[in-house]
């Protein structure tokens, strides 16, 4: 099978600081990739490169056969991106925002309106479609963002911490949505810090640390290789120089507790 996302020898510097060092990954249709790593490991840089937000990298990134540097627009139209931290124009209403997004993805206005309405209804936001989002809670904004990322029915969905601020019921909806999307052949790139969820939703986990891939495989494979029982432990094992127990012990000492 042809990989839908192919990253070859990817390097990226910010000034003198090297954020990504020789990353090569092949991702196949229908995979749910859990992309994890500590703060500053290069996760969001990778995500931004895949979305076409950063173009001054070296190496080759092809998505569905399109080279991202040569054909950024073709790539962008098959990707749905859900950024973190509720980045949206919050003085607009969900309706207005989704019609903007729909137009930018070249959807006919009726289609965008219909899909947007249906999806927001499913998220329980039917009554808020014409309210300005500046009064929304984090979770409500996140639901609008997820809707905006899926509106054009993309082949690849890139999620950056998509569950932030969502209540337990919405988390279940999104988790099930992810596996259903994957079943229907969509590729999901899931970047997150929530190990327990990554462990459950993804069928392949890629762990990066200091700009390089340090582990790549299914949760079962990683468990066997590392001999740890949970993703959390595998993560700690591979990315931390000193043991967590030592650090928490130190913290206790400072407070004078034994």
């Amino acid at each position: 099978m042809e990989p839908i996302i192919s990253i070859r020898n990817l390097y990226k510097n910010y000034g003198s600081k090297q954020v990504l060092k020789d990353i090569s990954i092949d991702i196949y249709p229908g995979q749910v990739i859990g992309y994890i790593g500590p703060n500053g490991a290069g996760k969001s840089t990778t995500v931004k490169i895949l979305c076409g937000l950063i173009s001054d990298f070296s190496g080759q990134v092809t998505i569905k056969g399109f080279d991202i540097k040569q054909n950024p627009l073709a790539v962008k139209s098959i990707i749905g991106y859900v950024p973190e931290l509720a980045e949206l124009y919050d003085v607009l209403t969900p309706n207005e925002f989704l019609s903007l997004v729909g137009a930018l993805y070249n959807l006919p206005p009726e289609v965008a309106a219909e899909r947007g309405k249906g999806m927001l209804e499913a998220f329980g936001l039917a009554g808020n479609m014409d309210q300005r989002m500046d009064t929304f809670s984090k979770g409500m904004k996140q639901k609008v963002l997820i809707t905006s990322g899926l509106l054009h029915n993309p082949d690849i969905i890139i999620l950056d911490e998509p569950l932030a601020g969502l209540d337990a019921n919405s988390v279940i909806i999104v988790k099930e949505l992810i596996s259903k999307l994957a079943d229907s052949g969509k590729t999901i790139f899931y970047s997150s810090h929530m190990m327990d969820i990554v462990e459950k939703v993804s069928d392949r986990i890629i762990l990066i640390n200091e700009g390089t891939v340090v582990a790549d495989g299914s949760f079962e494979e990683l468990k066997q290789k590392q001999g740890d029982s949970s993703l959390e432990k595998i993560f700690a094992h591979l990315t931390s120089t000193e043991s967590m127990g030592e650090a928490s012990g130190k913290l206790m000492d400072i407070l004078g507790n034994k």
């Binding site: 076409g52 937000l53 950024p72 627009l73 962008k76 950024p83 997004v101 930018l104 993805y105």
Partner: peptide
């Protein structure tokens, strides 16, 4: 700066 995350990931030339 929100333009960077909202408009630029869309297929807009």
């Amino acid at each position: 700066t929100r333009d960077n995350l909202i408009i630029l990931p869309k297929p807009v030339n």
